[in-house]
Computed example of a mutant assay.
Amino acid sequence: MPRTATVDTLPVDVAEEVLAENPGSETELGDVDEVLAADGETFAVAVVRVDDPRWEPVDDELESYEVTENVVRVEGSEVDLDLELTPGDQITLVASVPVGAAPEDVVLESLADGVRQELSLIDGTRTASVVEDIYARPTEVEVGDGASWSHDYDTRYGAMTQTGQLTGGVLTPFVPEVGWANPGHVYLGVDVTTQEPPSPHYDESTIRLRLADGSTVEPETNTGGSDGPFTRRVWFQLPVDATEAVVEVSIVIGLGGDMYDVAVSEVPLTLAGSVAGEEESGGGSAS
């Protein structure tokens, strides 16, 4: 959250910096040391740092991602400021506000990919968010037993062995190719590799997620490619309060018109950690 303060006077150098960032201002400060707030008003001062949220996967192009729009609102009215903010920027925002203004009366509103959030310039708290549950989501994926598998099977070409492994997982509220998770949900991404069967066999394996209540979740995106059924990271959408899940990999090998249901490998996952704790320890940022 931003560092904030309310003051009755501003050093002239801070006031000049604010005026320089406001192309519509024609106020001349003259030869003064400080600027006084108007009667019945005070200055809300906030230092805002814009961090790169680095949603997974961090190297993907954000094809659907719109430029983040930022405005300052005082009691619902937009303040005429030039706010072109990009990751890495740190700026000082100053607004003249009524004395005793509530936190929700003076806000920095950000809109990213259709999602709106507000930070108070009075006390730095988040006063509104349509994705509030992302701040209560888990942050770590712990992979349990069975992450590697090896299964023998017979075909008309003789005995074969199929191997594979689940190498890890990530949690994120936003995936570039599909956008934000639904309200109350988060994306779980898992990385799976499998051995390519010898020609003329081909791998027709599938994957799904089983939740603690027995319900199943199918992948959000196409996972296959020329290198096999799990060429890409597999993304699932699951409730933000889920603490465990099981990845089910149904291993199916094709040969001509024959399909061999080899086995179902199950890999338990534990979802742990809390982004809320990280947010409290980090402080000073908006993303």
Rank of each mutant, 00 (worst) to 15 (best):
P2S: 07
R3L: 14
A5H: 02
V7S: 07
P11L: 01
V12Y: 05
D13A: 11
E16F: 05
P23S: 13
E26S: 11
D31R: 11
V35L: 15
A38G: 14
A44M: 10
V45N: 03
R54D: 05
R54W: 12
W55L: 08
V71Y: 14
E75I: 00
V79S: 08
D80I: 12
D80M: 11
L83D: 02
P87S: 09
Q90A: 09
I91G: 00
V97C: 05
P98E: 14
A102Q: 09
V107L: 12
A128K: 05
A128W: 14
A128L: 10
V131H: 14
A136Y: 12
S148W: 04
H151P: 00
H151S: 03
H151K: 00
T161S: 06
L166S: 04
V170L: 10
F174I: 05
V175R: 15
P176M: 08
N182Y: 03
G184M: 06
V190I: 14
P197M: 02
P198F: 08
P200S: 12
A212E: 10
V217C: 05
E220H: 07
E244K: 08
I251V: 15
I253F: 04
I253W: 02
D261R: 04
V262P: 00
A263V: 00
S265V: 01
P268G: 05
L269A: 07
G273I: 02
A276Q: 11
G283D: 09
G283P: 02
